[in-house]
Amino acid sequence: MAKQSEKIKSLPKSKDTQDSDFIIAKPEKTSNNELCLFACEVVFFENICQRKRNLHTLIIIGQYGIKSLNGISNLIQLRELWIVECLLKDISELQSYNSKLEKLYLYSNKIDHIPNLSNCPELILLNLSGNNISQLRNLHSMPKLREFHLANNRIRMIGDAFRDNSSLSTVNMAGNPLYQLTVVTIIRILKNKMMFYNMLWHKNSDLSTKSLKNHLKQRNLTTAT
C-alpha cells in the first residue's frame, strides 16, 4: 500500500467536478462504460453509483474506505464488477440488486457468507476467494454459474451444495480445511465434468482413495492416477 499511496500523491487532482464527488486524484482508466479505480482514493462508493449509471464494467482495487455496497442498485447496466482487496464486509445490497451482472469479483475482503444472487440471473462467474466464508449456501440462486472460486476460506464440508448448478465447469476450493467430501459428491462432480482445483484433504476425511476407486469402478467411472 505504500507504493500505491506514493502513486496517489503523484497524480493530479481530478478536474471533473462530478468525479471529485467520489475520488481523489485522476482515475487510472475511465470511459463512458468502464471505470477502473486502482490508483485513486475512493471517497464515496454510493456517489460512483449515482454518477456513473451507464457503467458496464466497474473495477475497484485496494480501497479500504468501502464498507458497503450502498447504491449498487443504480448500476442496472453493469456486466462486470470488481471490488477486491478492499476489506469489504457488508454485501447485503447484492441480495436485492436486480441486474444483468455476468461476472462478480469480490476476492480478498472480509465477507463471511455467500449472498443470494437470484436477482442476477445471468451470473456466470463468482470469485469469493480470500474471505471468511464457512458455509456453502445460496448456490441454488445462480443456475447459470459456470465458474466458482472460493479458495482460502473456511469451508469444511461440501455436501450437496452444487446439486442445482448443472452449468458449473470450474470450482476452485484450494486452501480450505475440507473435512468431509462424500463419494456422492465426487460422482456428481465427475458426471458434470467439473474441474476442482487443488482440493485440500484432511487426514480424517471420510473418503479414502481406495474406497473412492471402488465406488467409481462399480459405476463405470474412473479417476486420474
Score class of each variant (00 low, 15 high):
residue 113 H to G: 01
residue 168 L to W: 12
residue 185 T to N: 06
residue 154 R to N: 14
residue 192 N to A: 14
residue 129 S to F: 08
residue 114 I to A: 11
residue 82 W to C: 02
residue 194 M to T: 11
residue 132 N to L: 03
residue 124 I to F: 08
residue 187 I to P: 00
residue 191 K to A: 03
residue 93 E to T: 10
residue 141 S to C: 09
residue 142 M to P: 07
residue 162 F to Q: 05
residue 117 L to A: 06
residue 104 L to Q: 03
residue 151 A to S: 15
residue 148 F to H: 03
residue 93 E to I: 00
residue 91 I to S: 01
residue 164 D to N: 13
residue 108 S to W: 00
residue 191 K to I: 14
residue 98 N to Y: 15
residue 167 S to C: 08
residue 162 F to H: 11
residue 75 L to W: 08
residue 82 W to E: 02
residue 146 R to T: 04
residue 92 S to D: 02
residue 100 K to L: 10
residue 73 S to G: 12
residue 152 N to K: 10
residue 165 N to S: 09
residue 152 N to E: 15
residue 158 I to W: 10
residue 95 Q to E: 15
residue 133 I to A: 03
residue 130 G to P: 01
residue 92 S to V: 09
residue 133 I to Y: 02
residue 165 N to M: 06
residue 172 N to M: 06
residue 77 Q to N: 13
residue 113 H to I: 02
residue 169 S to H: 11
residue 198 N to Q: 13
residue 155 I to T: 08
residue 138 N to R: 04
residue 74 N to Q: 13
residue 107 Y to P: 00
residue 115 P to F: 01
residue 94 L to F: 03
residue 130 G to C: 10
residue 95 Q to K: 11
residue 188 R to A: 09
residue 96 S to F: 14
residue 163 R to T: 05
residue 134 S to V: 05
residue 164 D to C: 04
residue 77 Q to D: 15
residue 82 W to V: 00
residue 162 F to G: 05
residue 117 L to S: 02
residue 136 L to T: 09
residue 154 R to H: 12
residue 85 E to T: 07
residue 152 N to M: 12
residue 99 S to N: 15
residue 176 N to C: 08
residue 126 L to F: 10
residue 129 S to A: 13
residue 113 H to N: 08
residue 122 E to P: 07
residue 177 P to M: 10
residue 195 M to T: 14
residue 166 S to H: 11
residue 117 L to Y: 05
residue 132 N to G: 01
residue 197 Y to N: 12
residue 108 S to D: 09
residue 145 L to R: 01
residue 81 L to D: 00
residue 87 L to F: 05
residue 146 R to M: 09
residue 151 A to M: 10
residue 148 F to L: 15
residue 93 E to H: 11
